[in-house]
Simulated scan of single mutants.
Amino acid sequence: MPYVKGNPRYIRDLYFVLRMTAGVVEYRMKLHKFDIKDWDKLVAWVVLVQQWPYRVSWIVLHAEDLELKAAVKKREKLSSCVEQAPDDYMDKKLHAIFKSAQEKQTELEKKGEETWKRLNSLDGDTELLELFLQEFDFTVQDMFDLLPVTTNMDTSIKRAINSALSQQA
């Protein structure tokens, strides 16, 4: 609860998102397409996405980049008939992903473009996010497991980040 904004309207909205997400999880469990071992982690994930949509979008983009790089490495290893190592990026902590993504984010925001300032204003306190990520100890695997049942992820933020990144390149 210390990570949740105190606004009653926000808490009510968060409650409805949690109910909707739980419904999606239960439905997918009936279809045997999802298995949840830790409901507290699901609740924490919903709060994380709701409270820090901009920075979570950065984390997701960064983790997806790691996944693509791992796929390329895997393909290279397969083509060269070298024994392949397990995908170690899946055990990486989201806090480490956040720190890495934050460096790139800060670098781009220093350039002062209005898009970054507008997107940055969507989030809560960054220090609280760091504490949250350390306390709940999410991994990339947890994130990829929970993304299919995430009902409150605003994909337009990811598109805006990608668009702004492509304009800067």
Results as ranks from 00 to 15, higher is better:
Val140Glu: 00
Asp87Gln: 09
Leu119Glu: 07
Lys77His: 15
Leu146Gly: 03
Val46Asn: 15
Met29Gln: 14
Lys73Pro: 09
Lys99Met: 14
Ile59His: 02
Leu108Met: 08
Leu108Cys: 07
Asp142Cys: 01
Ile36Glu: 10
Ser80His: 13
Asn162Ser: 13
His95Met: 09
Ser100Cys: 02
Asp91Thr: 06
Ser156Pro: 01
Leu66Tyr: 05
Thr126Gln: 09
Ile11Lys: 14
Ala160Gly: 11
Asp40Ala: 08
Phe138Lys: 09
Leu61Trp: 00
Val140His: 03
Asp123Pro: 01
Ala44Gly: 11
Met153Thr: 04
Ala85Lys: 14
Asn120Gln: 03
Asp154Asn: 08
Ala22Tyr: 10
Ser100Met: 07
Leu165Ser: 12
Ala63Glu: 00
Lys33His: 06
Phe16Gly: 14
Phe138Ser: 01
Asp145Ile: 00
Val24Tyr: 03
Glu114Ser: 11
Glu130Ser: 11
Gln84Cys: 03
Asp137Ala: 13
Leu48Asp: 11
Ser57Thr: 03
Leu131Asn: 06
Asp40Asn: 15
Trp39Ile: 04
Leu18Tyr: 06
Asp142Thr: 04
Val47Leu: 15
Leu108Glu: 09
Ala164Thr: 11
Val56Leu: 13
Lys93Ala: 10
Leu165His: 13
Gly124Asp: 01
Asn7Tyr: 10
Ile36Pro: 00
Lys37Gln: 10
Asp125Trp: 08
Val4Gln: 02
Leu68Val: 12
Ala164Pro: 03
Asp35Phe: 08
Phe34Arg: 06
Leu129Val: 02
Ala169Glu: 07
Gly6Pro: 01
Tyr3Phe: 12
Asp123Leu: 03
Cys81Asp: 12
Leu14Glu: 12
Arg159Asp: 15
Ala71Cys: 04
Asp91Asn: 14
Lys30Leu: 09
Leu147Phe: 05
Pro86Ile: 02
Phe144Ser: 00
Val43Gln: 14
Gln168His: 15
Val24Pro: 02
Trp45Gly: 07
Leu66Gly: 06
Asn152Glu: 05
Glu130Arg: 09
Trp45Ile: 05
Glu83Asp: 04
Arg159Glu: 15
Ala44Val: 09
Glu64Ile: 07
Ala164Ile: 04
Leu133Pro: 00
Ala160Glu: 15
Trp58Arg: 05
Phe132Met: 00
Phe132Gly: 03
Val60Thr: 11
Leu165Gly: 08
Asp65Asn: 11
Glu26Ala: 11
Trp52Tyr: 07
Lys104Arg: 14
Glu109Cys: 02
Lys5Ser: 07
Pro86Gly: 12
Phe136Tyr: 06
Val25Pro: 01
Leu131Trp: 06
Gln50Arg: 10
Ser100Asp: 06
Val4Gly: 04
Met143Thr: 00
Lys92Cys: 04
Tyr15Ala: 05
Val25Phe: 05
Tyr3Asp: 12
Ile59Ser: 01
Val46Phe: 10
Val4Asp: 02
Leu42Gly: 00
Val60Arg: 09
Phe34Asp: 04
Leu61His: 00
Glu109Thr: 08
Asn7Lys: 04
Glu107Pro: 01
